[in-house]
Amino acid sequence: MSVKVIEGGYPEHATFERTFPGKAYTDPEFFQKELDHIWFKTWLCAGRAEEIPKTGDFLTVEIAGESLIIIRAQDGSINTFYNVCRHRGSRLCEADNGNFSKGYLTCHYHSWMYDGKTGDLINAPNIPNDDQDFVKEDRSLKKIKTEVWDGYIWINLDENAESLKDAFALPESWALYNQYNMKNLKLGKKKTYKVAANWKLIMENAAECYHCSNIHPELSRTTPPSRSRVKVDEKIPETEVVKHTGGMDLRPGFERINIDGKVYRPPFPGLPEEEINKIYYLHIYPHLYIGMSADYVFMATIFPVTPEESIVQGYWLFDPEELEKDDAYIQDAVDFWDVTSLQDWEAAELAHEGNKSRTYENGGILTPAEWRVTAFKKYVESKVNGN
């Protein structure tokens, strides 16, 4: 019996597996376990360093109602704090981004001012510095572990977390991706998407291309999912969260990862000739995937809002020299991943609605072609169970 192979085949160990039960995508108790054991204990990608280039520039990130501020301090360092004033608990700011003058975070409510590097309380109006009943050192902002790697901002809410280097097996795990020089790329476009689906469904969708020929005509035309994936050298390590998903070749006649396959920008400087007609994918659990093509990088981060709602941030990164040109053109890349992403969000939303049905109480099945989804499921299960 002949079988049509899609998703580039699968490893010998792949088999049929159960999905999560339906309630795993809607149950508040299960969602809270995910927050406690995954989201508040894992290195997360919060954006790109070039988003906050100047002293006082900041971003806010929200994880299920927990708001965080990422700020460029006076010395150029990037630091993250809970978005909570230590006076009366007010949020320090509501904006997605902006600038705190001179790198001092000032609460709009009573003007308590904090240092952007240390979080130390600098000034509290109407309280004398020598007041013995008030200890400024006890009122510092709560700081969050923050590191920058290859231009990406990484945060971890667990103060006892291992370093990013250890969690990601750096720099060895990143060896393949050095050819894209991501540290020096610049943000050409950023888009925010609201998705009415559980965060896991979005990441599960990203973990397989079993669906690609059905819902992604543009993507399937450019990189046919029936082709074998380009494997990553086994010497490049993975970790519990860093997963190399390999590369895909472009269809003959296509020269770039976009809808028409035409060239609008030169390849990245120094990119080997044999890599120009490929795109590589990297997944970092629980919420990030990166696609690296010859002339731009697309990345997406997923953040949970509630068990049934998520926010996805899409980023398009380019060689800064290309962005500075008078005739700079990036819309081909933006359009390609925007249409593909919207197709994915619709699929995730439909799956979420179906997963609420009483007929899906015990879940469904994952085929061998969805072995990467199985791996992600096992990661979530392990963390939720405290392993």
Rank of each mutant, 00 (worst) to 15 (best):
M1E: 09
M1R: 13
K4Q: 13
V5T: 13
V5H: 12
A14E: 02
F16A: 10
E17Y: 12
E17G: 05
E17M: 13
R18Q: 12
F20T: 04
K23D: 12
A24R: 05
A24L: 02
T26P: 00
D27R: 05
E29H: 09
L35H: 05
W39Y: 12
F40W: 10
L44D: 09
A49G: 07
G56Q: 01
G56Y: 01
D57H: 03
E62A: 10
E62S: 14
A64R: 05
G65W: 03
E66N: 11
S67E: 07
S77Y: 05
T80C: 10
H87Y: 04
R88H: 09
R88V: 02
L92M: 15
E94N: 15
N99C: 15
S101I: 11
K102D: 15
G103M: 06
G103Y: 03
T106L: 00
S111Y: 07
G119K: 01
D120S: 08
N129T: 10
K136A: 15
E137K: 06
D138C: 09
K142D: 13
E147N: 13
V148A: 02
Y152M: 12
Y152I: 04
I153C: 04
L157Q: 08
E159A: 15
N160I: 03
N160V: 02
A161K: 11
A161E: 07
L164E: 10
A167S: 15
A167C: 13
F168H: 06
A169W: 00
P171W: 03
N178W: 03
G188H: 09
T192G: 07
K194F: 12
E204V: 08
N205M: 11
A207T: 08
E208M: 13
H211D: 07
I215R: 09
L219F: 15
P224G: 08
P224T: 06
R229F: 15
V230H: 04
D233C: 08
D233I: 07
K243L: 15
T245G: 11
M248K: 14
L250E: 00
G253N: 08
I257F: 06
D260Q: 08
R265A: 10
R265V: 04
F268C: 11
F268Y: 10
E274A: 11
I276L: 14
Y281Q: 12
H283E: 12
Y285M: 13
P286Y: 00
G291P: 01
D295P: 06
D295R: 02
V297T: 12
V297K: 00
T301Q: 05
T301K: 02
I311P: 00
V312S: 03
Y315P: 07
Y315C: 12
D319A: 06
K325G: 08
A328P: 14
Y329H: 14
Y329L: 15
Q331R: 06
D332I: 04
D332E: 11
D332Q: 09
S341N: 11
W345T: 03
E346D: 14
A347W: 03
E349I: 02
N355C: 03
K356I: 01
K356L: 05
N362H: 13
G363I: 01
L366A: 06
A369Y: 10
V373N: 01
K383T: 07
N387Y: 08
